[in-house]
């Protein structure tokens, strides 16, 4: 049982590291702020969840602590991505892509409120 758990934890560690790495690759390859936030806000968070699960198995943390951390990370990451993208749009960071339904709806180039 112990060995199985250890193996599972190592698998989770490898997966978590792999997805964090993919997140960084995405950060380098994608063209603008908004698409890059997809890479960091999704892939890296996915990796982080795996790493936290591995930590849950490998270390004598209170078991619930890591699960709670996963919940908080998942609750916070969309808010972070939204905050960054929203302020980027408001300060007029250019967007790659043809379609932009938001064009003209916000006062760009200045802080709103």
């Amino acid at each position: 049982m112990e060995t199985v758990l250890q193996l599972l934890a190592f698998l989770l560690l490898v997966l978590g590291t792999l997805f964090s790495l993919i997140g960084v690759i995405g950060f380098i390859r994608l063209p603008d702020v908004y698409t890059r936030l997809h890479a960091t806000g999704k892939v890296s968070v996915f990796g982080l969840v795996f790493l936290l699960l591995a930590a849950d198995i490998l270390t004598p943390l209170a078991t619930w602590k890591a699960l709670l951390l996963i919940f908080f990370v998942l609750a916070a990451s969309p808010a972070v991505a939204h905050a960054i993208s929203s302020s980027a749009y408001r300060t007029g960071v250019p967007l790659v892509g043809k379609r932009d339904d938001l064009k003209g709806k916000l006062e760009v180039g200045q802080e709103k409120d």
Binding site: I25, G26, T35, G97, R99, D101
Partner: peptide, 18 residues
Amino acid sequence: TARIVLDPNLPINPGIIA
């Protein structure tokens, strides 16, 4: 998202929709 990032052609068509 990982698959898109690792694809050599980077198959994205970004934009903002309502």
